[in-house]
């Protein structure tokens, strides 16, 4: 996909966000006694977002290049976001933060470690490092900050 297309898609999302803001703010009561009311700012800003996104879109159409859009490390980013989402889902459903947290850290270390060629030594250090970090986190948050995860 070209950089221009990515830019236009994002601007379309922003424009939609502006329209949604205007739409959901329409039922707020009007102000009185000199007050402009709670709807005035969101509505004005919503329209401003629509206008500015439209303007930026026109500019992108006129000036944007057809260079291919790229994000270095996109695969790793996507996997990381999915891993974090899975971790949050598991933690929210089953609890056991420290267990799943260890799994997330260890998994990410192994996944990123592929860049340098995985070996048993790296895997062992990753497991020990993750366990050590989570252990320290447990000690600090449970016994110093009194936060239970």
């Amino acid at each position: 996909m070209s950089a221009r297309m990515v830019d236009l898609i994002f601007l379309a999302l922003l424009l939609s966000a502006g329209l949604v803001t205007v739409f959901v703010s329409r039922d707020l009561p009007p102000g009185f006694g000199g007050d402009i009311g709670p709807a005035a700012f969101p509505v004005a800003l919503g329209w401003a977002l629509v206008g500015l996104s439209g303007l930026a879109g026109l500019r992108t159409l006129a000036l944007g290049t057809s260079v291919k859009a790229g994000l270095p490390g996109a695969g790793k980013i996507a996997v990381t976001i999915m891993a974090m989402a899975a971790f949050l889902l598991l933690w929210q459903t089953f609890g056991r933060f420290y267990l799943f947290g260890f799994g997330l850290m260890f998994g990410l270390l192994l996944f990123y470690g592929r860049d340098g060629g995985l070996n048993w030594r790296f895997a062992l250090w990753s497991a020990l490092g993750s366990a050590g970090f989570m252990g320290l986190a447990w000690l600090f948050f449970t016994h110093v900050l009194y936060v239970r995860f």
Binding site: T80, M84, F87, G101, L104, M105, L108, L109, Y112, G113, D115, G116, G129, S130, F133, M134, A137, F141, F149
Partner: peptide, 14 residues
């Protein structure tokens, strides 16, 4: 970065 990134992510969550 292989060490720093998981460290930053977990600290963020905590």
């Amino acid at each position: 970065n292989v060490v720093l990134v998981p460290f930053v992510i977990m600290l963020s969550i905590l």
